Simulated assay, not measured.
Amino acid sequence: MRITVIGVGKIKERYLRDGIAEYAKRLGRYCKLDIVEVADEKTPEHASEGVERLIKAKEGERIAKHLRDDAHVIALAIDGKQSTSEQFARQINDLGLHGTSHIQFVIGGSIGLDDAILKRADYHLSFSKMTFPHQLMRMVLLEQIYRAYKINAGEPYHK
C-alpha cells in the first residue's frame, strides 16, 4: 500500500519534525509513505470570509496538483466522520482488500480545506470536534496510521 500525506505548510517545530520522522520510519515496514508539503498562505488577523475563501482556494490549487485520480482521498475535516482506532484500521485494510493501492490523506491549513478539495475527497475523517493545530495533526495522523497497521497485523502496541 502506498500512503501519501499532503499537508499545508512547513513543520517548523523540531519536536513535531522528530515525531513525524519517527512514525515515518516505523511505517516503512508496512507501506510506502510519502509526505508532501504545499505552501501555505498568510492569513491576516480578522480576515473576512471572502479573504479566507481566496486563501483556501490558493492552498486548494496547490493540493490538487498532488491528488491522483487512482488514489482514495481522505480529507481531514472537523465535520467528517469519527471512528475508533479499530474502525480506522479496518477501513485501511478493507480499502486494500478491494483493490486500492494508494491512499492520500489531506490536511488543510489553519483555516481548513477548500470546498473543491472536500468535494474531491472520497471520505471525510474527523479526529475530534475539537480544533487542533494542523502541524500537530500530521504527527497524530501518522501515529494512527501506524496503529492501524499494528492492529491489522495483530501485533502488540495498540493498548
Rank of each mutant, 00 (worst) to 15 (best):
L76H: 01
K159A: 07
V140S: 07
A89L: 07
G96D: 13
I35P: 01
R2P: 01
Y30V: 11
G99A: 05
I20Q: 02
R90Y: 04
F105H: 03
L54V: 03
E45P: 12
L142K: 15
H72G: 00
L142W: 06
V140G: 00
R14G: 02
D70F: 00
L113Y: 05
H98I: 00
D114E: 13
R29T: 07
K129V: 09
D79P: 01
Y123V: 12
I78Y: 02
E61K: 15
G60A: 08
E155V: 11
K56N: 12
H134C: 03
I111Q: 05
A39C: 00
P156V: 13
K119E: 08
A77H: 15
V140N: 06
L142Y: 13
I11H: 01
A77E: 15
Y123D: 12
E37A: 12
I103V: 15
Q91Y: 05
E49L: 13
K119R: 15
L54N: 14
I3T: 10
D94M: 07
G60V: 13
I6R: 01
G108H: 00
G112L: 12
R138H: 04
Y15N: 04
L54K: 14
S85F: 03
E22W: 04
F132H: 08
A64R: 15
T84P: 01
Y30K: 01
M130N: 11
Q144A: 11
R29M: 04
R29D: 02
K42M: 04
R53T: 04
R14C: 00
A75W: 06
Y123H: 09
L97P: 00
G108S: 10
S85L: 03
A153K: 15
E59I: 12
L136D: 09
G9R: 06
H98S: 05
A47R: 08
E49K: 14
E61V: 01
H46C: 04
H98Q: 05
Q82G: 07
L136F: 07
Q135T: 14
K65H: 12
N93R: 14
D94I: 02
S110E: 10
L16H: 14
L27P: 11
S110V: 15
H98P: 03
I3G: 00
E143C: 01
R90K: 15
R120D: 00
H66Y: 10
L136A: 05
D115V: 05
H124Q: 14
E45T: 13
K159G: 06
I74F: 00
N93Q: 05
V106L: 04
Q91E: 14
S48K: 13
P156F: 04
V51C: 03
K32S: 11
A121I: 12
F105Y: 11
P44V: 09
A121W: 05
E49V: 14
S110R: 15
I11S: 07
S48D: 10
Q91T: 08
E155C: 07
G7I: 14
F132E: 10
G9Y: 03
E41R: 14
D40N: 03
R17V: 13
R26C: 07
E61T: 12
L141P: 11
A24I: 02
Y146I: 11
Y149L: 02
P44C: 04
R29E: 06
L16V: 13
L136Q: 06
L76M: 14
T43D: 00
K119P: 03
Y157R: 11
G154K: 11
I35L: 07
E45W: 09
Q87C: 10
L97W: 10
K81G: 03
